[in-house]
Design a protein around this nucleic acid. Structure first.
Lengths: 310, 310
DNA sequence: CATTGCATTTTGTTGCGCCAAGATACAGAA
DNA sequence: TTCTGTATCTTGGCGCAACAAAATGCAATG
């Protein structure tokens, strides 16, 4: 059973999800068209997915009758996915690491990179375009690419936190703010897991991911597409910015506790306090990361003037 | 003299700029290598650019001696540019317009669009990818694309202004805030020109552009890359959002006056007041565009709580 | 020796055709 | 009917080759 095409693998996972969610009884019939409609695809890929699941013993096929549920799969939906995204990520990181480690010149050509990393043009281009979007490489006017002088890590960090402090707390106060219980529970579980030893067990990359996801999920509750977009983009640059910063796992646990407290505040239905708390949280992290003391030392006149308009 | 390749055209413009800026005397020699170094390209495209300029009478060629300045070109650097970006924009708008006018189904395939608009795959895909980034179309799992249900125009508008009110005024208070005199004068001239009848003379598209540019330039003074990115993205969606909103040219002139006043405040070196003014300006525009009254009617408790942390 | 003129090499884009994967249509079984 | 099984059509990704554009090297010139 080879890894199948992207879609069939993804569908297989989604079908498993669907089964577990819908609480179907063992023996239930799984009509192809029903699933196809649910997932907005045609029957063909659904059929392939079911074939894969049959191989895993989740469903059984009765010729001329279709597929039937055989056992509700264990918690893990299993991932035999030919993980394109992960491969792309790996390529990205390989180049990013080399660049940040000073192993790549300021100016490079595509073919040189293709040779060096054994990539095909398409793959490389996708990676370069991503970097371009993130603003740390740009095309030269003629041929080749040029790495932008990396924004000074500390200053960029400070900038990102000042930006976040503006809109993340405000996101909690948006008129469209609605908590998605399931999502909230998910990020709460993640944070608990981190406190429960995960901080020391997981890779840095994974820690980044969970942290980013926490804030992204909160902002997504606001329903404000512009803010959601903003937090995504800031998060997209976090890894780059934090690459050289050391990872203080002690401080990280503190952050988790703050995250959990924030969730509690939210659930108590007081978005005002939650927002204020989030703001202080961000300010603390900012101070820790950049060493620049809180802005409360700057004359508060400006801020007061601005917010007086509220 | 055909439109030449993108780079040569762009170079031609830049060379003209360079000539006008450097105040070279008529008759000066323009060594290819010097220009090539200045623009970070090789001599080849520089030579092509000079050839084009020779055709326009800006420079003269003496065989075996190279190119010499013949007359310092008039104010306008002239644009014989085969404007790729503009073509892309046109394609984008053509599809966007049709969609917004309800002429396109919710689900479409690439080839259908290619036929309908006579585009090549590459061109279409670039357009679709842009739309995807902007969040109003997405791939179906299998084949084809699906237009997302457009965010309700009024609500999206309100969201964008709430977002802008958070960070645009704050941009003026960023520690790295530095006014670029030349840029400031440029946008001031633009606004004056609008007041001076431009509002009624120019196309809607051009009005959009000048308005977007005004705010983008202000935010760019902050030096905060995240905020600059944010305003660019918000502006990128403005045209789409305002497509169906009527264009009130009277109100537009009022906006221009406010813009000019804002520039005055900035020049007086009081960013605090400028920020406050900008915030009120945005709030007024928001109210005008969405009909939703100012948020001051909502309990100010939240805002106060948040900003108390400043 | 700096610079042009020209030839050659390198680079990156575009068009085209192929093919796996998805959509669709239809016949037949339950 | 409703659903499966199967055949056929369509879509869109991928690699290759050709081409245009840019870089590079070198001889010739003032």
């Amino acid at each position: 059973m080879n890894a199948a095409s992207g879609l069939t693998a993804r569908l297989a996972s989604r079908v498993v999800d669907y089964i577990r969610r819908s609480g179907l009884a063992v023996g239930s019939h799984l009509p192809e068209q029903r699933l196809a409609d649910a997932f907005r695809v045609s029957r063909t890929p659904v059929r392939h997915a079911l074939h894969v699941l049959a191989g895993m013993g989740v469903v059984a096929r009765r010729p001329r009758h279709g597929y039937f549920l055989r056992r509700v799969p264990a918690q893990t939906p299993k991932l035999p996915i030919r993980d394109d995204a992960a491969l792309a990520e790996e390529r990205y990181l390989r180049i990013a690491d080399d660049r940040l480690a000073g192993k790549l010149e300021d100016q490079v050509t595509e073919t040189a990179l293709m040779r060096r990393y054994g990539l095909r043009r398409r793959e490389l281009q996708r990676t370069l375009h991503r970097m371009q979007r993130e603003g740390w490489i740009e095309r030269k006017p003629g041929h080749g690419w040029m790495f932008a002088t990396l924004p000074d890590s500390v200053e960029a960090h400070a900038q990102s936190y000042r930006f976040r402090m503006l809109f993340e707390p405000a996101a909690l106060l948006e008129p469209g703010f609605r908590i998605d219980r399931a999502e909230l529970e998910r990020i709460r579980r993640d944070q608990r897991m981190l406190l429960d030893g995960g901080v020391h067990r997981l890779s840095r990359a994974r820690l980044f991911e969970i942290g980013s996801d926490f804030h992204e999920t909160l902002v997504s509750f606001s329903g404000n597409g512009f803010m959601i977009d903003a937090i995504r983009r800031v998060n997209g640059m976090r890894r780059l910015l934090e690459y050289r910063a050391k990872c203080d796992r002690g401080r990280f646990m503190e952050q988790c506790r703050e995250h959990l407290h924030l969730l509690d505040l939210l659930e108590q239905g007081d978005p005002g306090r939650a927002a204020a708390y989030l703001r202080r949280h961000l300010d603390l992290v900012r101070e820790k990361k950049t060493g620049i003391p809180s802005s409360s030392s700057t004359p508060p006149r400006h801020a007061a003037t601005v917010t007086a308009q509220l």
